[in-house]
């Protein structure tokens, strides 16, 4: 079979390209919502951890946060995904996409939390002291002085986590979601041709990552304004 015939068989016949397009759409939806949840969750957990370390307050929340980090980082994301869908939501009718977004968001939050925490800790203690010495509260100093610098410092790591998250959603097929990976796999099972569908899937992931990288790079350059000498 020529390449052209294989291409037609895998993507054109029976509109099989739709498996990839629908899969990509599911992958993106899951990634975007998981990302929003993960960043929010990670941000809050990091704040709790840092505030506890610096002031000794929030002891209970800190312990909960530590437990969360240990459990989430200590178990595979596929297992977490299946537990959430087949155990936690076993008796509820929740859409698979929602369950997946929750699972990946909760998972990503643990990693984002440690990224944010390392960013906050990278800021010299003198910055907090200078803010407090002017009469600003802990909260205002954190928000206006420490955080903006911390976020700038962790942007590369955060971009990395976004890319990781996007690719991790490829295990969504375990709860029978037709994401991009599953879409390619379905084509393979129909056409008995592994190479073209899987290469296509890989190429699509790569393109999405390139777009992500582009925007993170842009943001980095914008935030680096104050570094220019």
């Amino acid at each position: 079979m020529s390449f052209k015939e294989r291409f037609i068989l895998n993507f054109i016949e029976d509109n099989r390209w739709k498996y990839l397009l629908d899969g990509l759409s599911n992958t993106l939806v899951i990634t975007i919502f998981a990302l929003m949840l993960g960043v929010t969750l990670g941000f809050l957990v990091a704040l709790v951890r840092v505030t506890h370390d610096k002031t000794g307050k929030l002891k209970l929340l800190n312990n909960i946060s530590k437990l969360y980090l240990t459990v989430i980082r200590g178990t595979p994301v596929v297992v977490q995904l299946m537990i959430i869908y087949y155990v936690v939501f076993a008796t509820m009718s929740v859409s698979k996409i929602v369950a997946a977004a929750l699972a990946f968001g909760i998972n990503s939050g643990a990693y984002v939390a440690e990224i944010f925490r390392s960013g906050i800790m990278s800021i010299d203690a003198g910055q907090m002291e200078a803010g407090r010495s002017l009469g600003l509260s802990y909260k205002t100093t954190m928000w206006k002085i420490v955080m903006p610098q911390a976020v700038k410092n962790v942007l590369p790591a955060l971009g990395n986590e976004m890319i990781t998250l996007l690719k991790e959603t490829s295990v969504a097929g375990y709860i029978a979601i037709q994401d991009l990976t599953k879409g390619g796999d379905i084509i393979r099972s129909r056409t008995y041709d592994a190479m073209l569908p899987l290469l296509a899937v890989a190429l699509v992931y790569l393109c999405v990552v390139l777009v992500l990288q582009h925007f993170v790079g842009k943001l980095e350059r914008r935030l680096a304004r104050s570094d220019r000498r």
Binding site: D124, G126, Q127, E129, A130, G131, S133, P148, Q149, S226
Partner: peptide, 12 residues
Amino acid sequence: GMVFQHFNLFPH
């Protein structure tokens, strides 16, 4: 007011 050895201006 407080003035520090290492200035502690806000770089951002």
